[in-house]
């Protein structure tokens, strides 16, 4: 469990005059669930885009499993708040989208898409078009599409941000189950402190102007987590600490 999966060394990114990401160094352990919280505009998505290779950093290096991948693509699973399902494909064909975009889709891909969908509660919707699905179901399909890429590192950028509170809670528990089953490493952006604590082993707090990581907090809350966790004194204490960091109260 102590193997480093992802490492950032002195990564910086500017947009013109503005520094979206000040020098950032990070190391993420294999199999961990790391949450990133911060107000909007503090460079969270920029950080993901640099890791995924969509943006080339102005300085520094990104390493995955020891290999330099700075500015390259094709090595992470990435999911956004927008589900980005294509309306002209069925659920099954949306799940196999990554395969379709890189090579021919084969029966193994299709079988896996069906297995994953069935296992995580969408087995009856394989031939549905996305328009027939609810917001929560769409996000689950988007997550399965990310999962079947077999990338060890999953970047999730506010994936539940657009869902209502109840669906969101269901999705959080669902995500934890999938994470436990598959042993992937997850980086999870949210601006919801409760969500970050409920899900993660570790919380990175970011701050804007310039965008940077201001605190790296270990989350010791016991798993499995449930409704009780949200009222645990340790939870409350961590929450108030992060709130102070986010809202400028000197700590």
């Amino acid at each position: 469990m102590e193997n480093t999966l992802l490492e950032l060394r002195g990564v910086t990114k500017r947009f013109g005059e503005a520094t979206a990401l000040a020098e950032t160094s990070l190391s993420i352990h294999e199999g961990s669930f790391v949450a990133i919280v911060g107000p909007s505009g503090c460079g969270k998505s920029t950080l993901f885009n640099v890791i995924a290779g969509l943006l080339a950093p102005d300085g520094g290096e990104v390493r995955l499993q020891g290999e330099p991948v700075t500015g390259a693509t094709g090595h992470v699973g990435y999911m956004l708040q927008k589900d980005l399902l294509v309306p002209w494909r069925t659920v099954e064909d949306n799940i196999t989208m990554a395969a379709r975009l890189t090579r021919r889709v084969n029966n193994v891909d299709r079988a896996e898409a069906r297995r994953v969908a069935t296992e995580y509660g969408l087995g009856d919707f394989l031939r549905h078009y996305p328009r027939a699905l609810s917001g929560g179901m769409r996000q689950r399909v988007a997550f399965m599409r990310t999962l079947v890429t077999h990338q060890p590192l999953l970047l999730l950028d506010e994936p539940f941000g657009a869902l209502d509170a109840q669906t969101r809670l269901d999705m959080q528990q669902w995500l934890l189950q999938v994470w436990r089953d598959t042993g992937r490493t997850v980086l999870f952006i949210t601006h919801d402190v409760d969500e970050s604590l409920f899900l993660s082993d570790r919380v990175l707090v970011m701050s804007p102007r310039p965008g940077r990581v201001v605190a790296d907090i270990t989350n010791p809350l016991a798993r499995p987590r449930d409704m009780e966790t949200l009222t645990d004194p340790a939870f409350i204490e961590l929450k108030s600490r992060i709130m102070h960091l986010l809202h400028g109260g000197a700590s």
Partner: peptide, 17 residues
């Protein structure tokens, strides 16, 4: 949607695909 095209890039999709 440029995000859709970015998603394809994340997968390492060639442009013609």
């Amino acid at each position: 949607d440029p995000d859709l095209i970015n998603l394809a890039r994340v997968y390492g999709a060639p442009r013609w695909r």
